[in-house]
Structures are given as C-alpha cells and as structure tokens.
C-alpha cells in the first residue's frame, strides 16, 4: 500500500481557495519534490499533510489524506497524534531559542514521555548522526542551538524532526535561506534519509528537484498540473504548462 495517498484535497484561506482538488500518491522511501511558482499552493499542500494548515486563521479544507492506511482527516483523529508521525522542517532554520543543541533534538522525545537520560542521549546521537551533524556538535551539545551557523541550524532542525523516528518528513523550502555549500550538504543528507523515511520537499529550485527527487509534482495556481517520475517530468512533460515552467518561460 502507498504510504501517502491524497484524495480530492481542496484547501482555503478564508474565501481564497489555495488548493483545488488535488490527488496524489507516494510510496515508501521516495523523495517527492513539489515545484511551481510562488503562491501556487505547494507550501499549503505540505501543511495539509500534518494538519498544520488548520492552525492558520481562516485555514480550512476538504478531502482525504491517507497516511499509512489511515485518513488523518477522519472525524475523531487528533491532529497531535498525526503530527507525531510526520516530521516537519521549515523554510528558515528555527531551533528553539533558549534550548541547547541537546534539548532541541530531545524535545520531541521528552514530549513523548521519554525521560531516561541514557535513552535520550542515545537517540539524540542517532538523530544527529543521521542529520550529519554529530561530528560538528558532539563536544558542544550544551551550547544554545541558535549559536550554530545557518546550515548547521537547519540540520539541527532536521535532527529534531528525525529524533522521534517519523516515517514521513515534510520540508518546506529547507535550503532557501542557506548558502550553496550548506545547501549541497542538505541535499546529500536528503538522499541518505531516503533509506529510512519518505521525504516530501517543497522547492522553488528546479535543479534541486531534478537532483534529489524520485517523483516531482508541478503545482500552478492551486492545481496539480503534472505528477510523475522526476526524469519523465523533466525530460518529457505531458502538459504544455509544465514544459514552459521547466524551460524557464514563466515563474
């Protein structure tokens, strides 16, 4: 069964419809890239996958999102339970100020009720290793998370999301605020993460989508114009609008 299956999803901000009847499936251990011009709804789409969209004033939606065989919008589903199973990394690195590197990574575990120091230490190390940050911070775990460089902060945020071992990680333009070297590191990291998790990544950078993703979805004005294998979308787009976008004729 698919890990992610979105069926007829429409989303609104008040009166404004940001997503129009989107359907999409993704398998395990895939990287799915969402591309499209700004304002096309790709960020809104990922925020529907962990029920963050409804936190925005006026945000509401219709349709179904199935994660691992369960409709997360079924009545009675607690969004808190959903979000535990879906990690999220944001556009700007946002470690919690006032928390050390260690605390930033362990905060999700502590919320889940794990308080044994040894278990926390082990899981924190594991997450930091997966985020390829361990070697850089292992001696300074007590320093504030905000004292790291931008690229390190973003990897810290990835470690924070990985620590609770979610099967899905959502990334909303995670490299748009970073320099090219940090960006390259994070792209490499995403490739490795595929072993463990499914990554849904929003990007405004088509080269990035082509480099790192297995499937690509092209959004335009709230519609899903095209979705398929990345090679295919970039080499033989089915829709004329996709072709015009990837050849740089608008956007």
């Amino acid at each position: 069964m698919e890990l992610i299956a979105v069926k007829n999803l429409s989303a609104w901000f008040g009166e404004f419809q940001a997503l129009k009847n989107i359907s999409l499936v993704a398998e395990r251990h895939e990287v799915v890239a969402l591309i499209g011009p700004s304002g096309c709804g790709k960020s809104t789409f990922v925020r529907c996958l962990n029920r963050l969209h409804e936190e925005v004033p006026g945000g509401h939606l219709q349709g179904e999102v199935w994660l691992d065989g369960q409709n997360i919008y079924a009545p009675g589903v607690d969004p808190v339970n959903v979000r535990r199973g879906v990690g999220m990394v944001f556009q700007k690195p946002n470690p919690f100020p006032g928390m050390s590197i260690f605390e930033n990574v362990s905060v999700g575990l502590r919320l889940a009720g794990i308080s044994k120091r040894a278990v926390l230490a082990e899981k924190v190390e594991q997450a930091l290793r997966q985020a390829v940050l361990w070697d850089e911070v292992k001696d300074v775990l007590k320093r504030p998370g905000t004292s790291l460089s931008g690229g390190q902060q973003q990897r810290l945020c990835i470690a924070r999301a990985l620590a609770v071992e979610p099967p899905v990680i959502l990334m909303d333009e995670p490299t748009s605020a970073l320099d090219p070297i940090s960006t390259a590191k994070i792209e490499e990291l995403i490739q490795e993460l595929k072993e463990r998790v499914t990554v849904v990544i929003v990007t405004h950078n088509m080269q990035q989508a082509a480099r790192i993703s297995d499937r690509t979805a092209f959004f335009l004005l709230g519609e899903l114009v095209e979705y398929g294998k990345t090679d295919q979308v970039f080499t033989q787009p089915q829709d004329e609008r996709t072709e015009r976008y990837i050849t740089g004729r608008f956007g």
């Binding site: 963050l52 535990r84 999220m88 944001f90 700007k92 946002n94 999700g108 945020c157 924070r160």
Partner: peptide, 19 residues
C-alpha cells in the same frame, strides 16, 4: 514558525505554549 515547529513535533497546545 517556532509555534509551528512545536506543533509539528506533536506537541499539544499547552506543550506548544510551554516550549
């Protein structure tokens, strides 16, 4: 974005306010 990060980690509303 800090509030969203907390909620995204599966914090309840109160836990979000706290952390």
């Amino acid at each position: 974005s800090l509030r969203e990060a907390a909620l995204g980690l599966g914090a309840t509303r109160w836990e979000m306010l706290r952390i």
